[in-house]
Write a protein that binds this DNA or RNA. Structure first.
Lengths: 218, 218
DNA sequence: ACTTGTGAAGATGTTCACAGCA
DNA sequence: TGCTGTGAACATCTTCACAAGT
């Protein structure tokens, strides 16, 4: 779990709420595009696939700026959420491992749209080093320290095979990375001061598989 | 959240536990490979990055077959977890959308290793249809019904742009899919009888971004 | 002596229900 | 009247602490 072991509260806002805020942000972006000025908790809940009380409780962590009897001003709300998620600041990210998955992530449009800037890609495979993927040159992993420091990179994405993941994580930590998003199917260990999240593609299928098994639905 | 709204309990086992079981399974696979015969909750907890009481509680949902004073037999435990996760049965999956991300998922080794069989890939782009990616031919989405029924496909992966995701989901549902793993950055709606999970790549970065902002750690 | 299995306590998250305000 | 904001009730999940088994 993220932040386990931290003694002081990192944030007043529960992690499930943070997760849902990212969803609300997406819904609000759509609404703003459609020129919708105001949205009720009911409507937003419906868009986001949660219940209305949940939306109100979640938003209450950001302050109270809905108007009773009316709803929330879409633009303003989106702005508040963006600030909370730190999306008003451009953040530099690097990716380590440019196999199929890494390459796909490297070119993922969604990151760019949210203000994440892919500044470099690393690999150890000599055949990949020097090539260019989506306009970003693949650099020897040996140079990761230099570039993380020079470009003030805050987030590192690990997309290497499981066996290599821990070593890559260690290098990123030494280089001064602040947070890691790990796609390798293995549990990696980092100091408590480093933020770590894991995206496990197989696990997701396995979870579906479990529920497929035990499907005695109404 | 998965399964919201189901009146009967789908499974006695809490979802967070299911998630961790996938991790334990991976750790156990490693241990078995290393010829480790027995593992304590302490050791497994350490490998999985959780605490020992949690491991014991999680495993207790599967029955009690640890040996007090000794630990758990790795092979046996792995077997029990595999059964619980439904991994003893081969499951067919299809993917819709073979852009960068879709193509990467199509060739993802991890799925194969866990007994998931990629039986087809679909797209609507004429330029992609007929090509072959990782040995799997890309088929016109029009034929999705036919193939899902013929090959008894249980899981559909959506890797299309956000705008197209809901329509693709609707098609999959009509075709008789039982569960969907959605990679499109949008909330899609499906009938309650369909299992749905979402993997949101941007959200993961946004969550890190939030905590990077509010880092007033000890 | 060592480690599991599990009630009970504690912590966290969700939903309800309604007061409060436009 | 309509919708927000929120304390309180409820539900769920995690951790503790120790009895019980080998």
């Amino acid at each position: 779990m993220l932040l386990k072991g931290a003694k002081l509260k990192i944030s007043e806002i529960p992690e499930p709420t943070i997760m849902r805020l990212t969803v609300y942000a997406r819904c609000l972006t759509d609404l703003v595009k459609q020129n919708v000025q105001v949205v009720s908790s009911e409507k937003l809940a419906n868009e986001a696939g949660v219940n209305a009380a949940q939306v109100r409780k979640d938003l209450s962590y950001l302050g109270s700026f809905g108007r009773r009897g009316v709803g929330y001003e879409t633009n303003h709300l989106l702005n508040k959420i963006s600030i909370c998620l730190g999306l008003t600041k451009e953040r530099s990210i690097v990716i380590v491992g440019v196999g199929k998955l890494g390459s796909a992530l490297l070119g993922y449009q969604g990151f760019l749209e949210k203000g994440f800037k892919m500044v470099a890609a690393f690999d150890t495979d000599k055949r990949r080093i020097g090539s260019s993927i989506g306009g970003i040159e693949v650099i020897d992993l040996e140079r990761v320290d230099e570039i993380i420091k020079k470009k003030n990179v805050e987030i590192g994405i690990i997309a290497v095979p499981a066996e290599a993941a821990q070593k890559v994580a260690d290098r990123l930590v030494v280089a001064g990375i602040k947070s890691i998003l790990n796609f390798a199917p293995v549990v990696i260990k980092v100091p408590e001061s480093i933020l770590l999240r894991r995206v496990d593609l197989s696990s997701e299928l396995e979870i579906l598989s479990h529920y497929l098994n035990s499907s005695h639905k109404e």
